[in-house]
Design a protein around this nucleic acid. Structure first.
Length: 422
RNA sequence: GGAGGCGUGGCAGAGCGGUUGAAUGCACUGGUCUUGAAAACCAGCAAGGGUUUAUGCCCUUCAGAGGUUCGAAUCCUCUCGCCUCCGCCA
């Protein structure tokens, strides 16, 4: 949610910023509504002040045993007028609010201008592409020959897009989650959270999935709950409607959860195997920070996510998303992509975003500044650290051997209790 | 699924038609005292909005929405949320 005040003060700049995100919003309509709303509000205020004053006089007369029928009749009149105007005001307010809640966050000034993902900027490439002097297998083949993944039976259970991990595949998935959680807890001092996987609409609203992206999520009709598309949702809402102590900031949480996405409209090659699935696991990091610190924290968050990939020794790159590719709520975002030797393409395994006060406004997440004892919105950030399906693709494919086995990276061996699959 | 209870400021907790934006306590901030701290004492301390050059003035908000009334935290209706007990179940 953008601050209406900010829009009033700088409508042209905001309009431009929003346009850079590919969103056409007519701020003149919004400002006009705002102007009318405020005009009515002023009238209502004056009438109310009038009524409050006279009501007090009536009370005084009553206390001394008298009655002022004339004043009471007049105030009944005023009451009706207030009611009429108030209805108008409420109507304007609702219009303003529903216009405001679908306007995306504005990009930070440092974000490169661009139209779509082709304009994203590669800011870093780490490691090297693994070289093989034999024919390599892709993750589907490895998953099948090593009995790690069973997509046929998964489809029988839940339909396509729901992975079934079996045996060491299931163990590897569990090992990845435990390893990454432990890593963030121990090395980066995050506090561990295990959240609900279903959430109310209000929680989805905080993060920006609602009201615009309802179709992307699974929804339980009877209970009116959404299956979370990311742990960002429950974890960010931990502090919804709270006022935090400034001393408690920054708050860093890490959580693993299943993530559920309908992925409506995606089809074709991208949906093979683990490339794009309806349910997957992800270790997420969420930060609540002081506004002036949020861009430093974004660097930190990105470094924390990168550290995971580095510890696996996987080849990856960092993208700085351009304005056109930024998500609805984000002001700035870095993506991490690992290299898939068999697909011969980069696979997104993490997004690290600063939402500034956009989510905090929607979820009413504030802190009390110790300098002046006033409340202000915190800045929220989150990043995947990281999502498991594509990580598993990269690991299986990168560490396969000529005889069809897969070497387990050193850091995972204590979790897998083995050095090799197969 | 059945029955009941409860939603008031950062927290706890009074108030149950008119000087109540809200007692009191805790927390917090400033001051006095102290070598310093603690304690004690004094003072301050909600948020949102309108208006104003500014000091200020005004309005709204006691879960939310409606209703009764000249006037609602207080009475009525509905909705939402939380809690407890019983039933069912891992």
């Amino acid at each position: 949610m953008l601050s209406l005040n900010r829009i009033r003060e700088n409508p042209d700049a905001i309009q431009q910023a929003v346009a850079a995100k590919g969103e056409q919003v007519d701020f003149n309509v919004l400002l006009d509504l705002d102007k009318q709303h405020r005009g009515i509000q002023t009238q209502v205020n004056d009438l109310r002040a009038d009524r409050n004053r006279v009501s007090e006089e009536i009370a005084a007369v009553k206390r001394s045993g008298g009655d002022d029928d004339k004043a009471i009749a007049a105030m009944r009149e005023v009451g009706n007028k207030i009611k009429t105007l108030e209805d108008e005001a409420i109507n304007f307010k609702a219009q303003i609010h529903s216009a405001l809640e679908v306007i995306p966050n504005t990009p930070h000034e440092s974000v490169p201008i661009g139209k779509d993902e082709t304009d994203n900027k590669v800011v870093k490439e780490w490691g090297e592409k693994p070289v093989f002097d034999y024919d390599i297998k892709d993750h589907l083949e490895l998953g099948s020959t090593l009995n790690l993944l069973d997509f046929d039976r998964a489809a029988k259970i839940a339909g396509s897009g729901f992975p079934l991990y079996t045996g060491l595949g299931a163990k590897l998935e569990r090992a990845l989650i435990n390893y990454m959680l432990d890593f963030h807890i121990k090395e980066h001092s995050y506090k561990e959270i295990f959240p609900p996987f279903l959430a109310r609409g209000s929680s989805l609203y905080t993060c920006g999935q609602l009201p615009k992206f309802a179709d992307d999520m699974y929804h339980t009709e009877k209970d009116q709950l959404y299956l979370i598309p990311t742990a960002e949702v429950p974890v960010t809402n931990i502090h919804a409607d709270e006022i935090l102590d400034e001393d408690s900031l920054p708050i860093n949480y890490t959580a693993s959860s299943a993530c559920f996405r309908r992925e409506a409209g995606s089809y074709g090659k991208e949906t093979r195997g683990l490339l794009r699935v309806h349910q997957f696991n992800k270790v997420e990091m969420v930060k609540f920070v002081r506004p002036e610190k949020s861009y430093d924290e974004l660097e930190q968050l990105l470094a924390n996510a990168e550290a995971i990939l580095q510890s696996f020794g996987l080849h990856y790159r960092v993208l700085e998303l351009c304005t056109g590719d930024l998500s609805f709520s984000a002001a700035k975002c870095f993506d991490l992509e690992v290299w898939s030797p068999a697909e011969k393409q980069w696979l997104e395994v993490s997004s690290c975003s600063n939402f500034e006060d956009f989510q905090a406004r929607r979820g009413n997440i504030r802190y009390r500044r110790s300098s002046d004892n006033k409340t202000d919105y915190v800045h929220t950030l989150n990043g995947s650290g990281v999502a498991t399906p594509r990580l598993m693709i990269a690991l299986l494919e990168s560490y396969q051997t000529p005889d069809g086995k897969v070497i387990i990276p050193k850091c995972l061996q204590p979790y897998m209790k083995t050095e090799v699959l197969g």
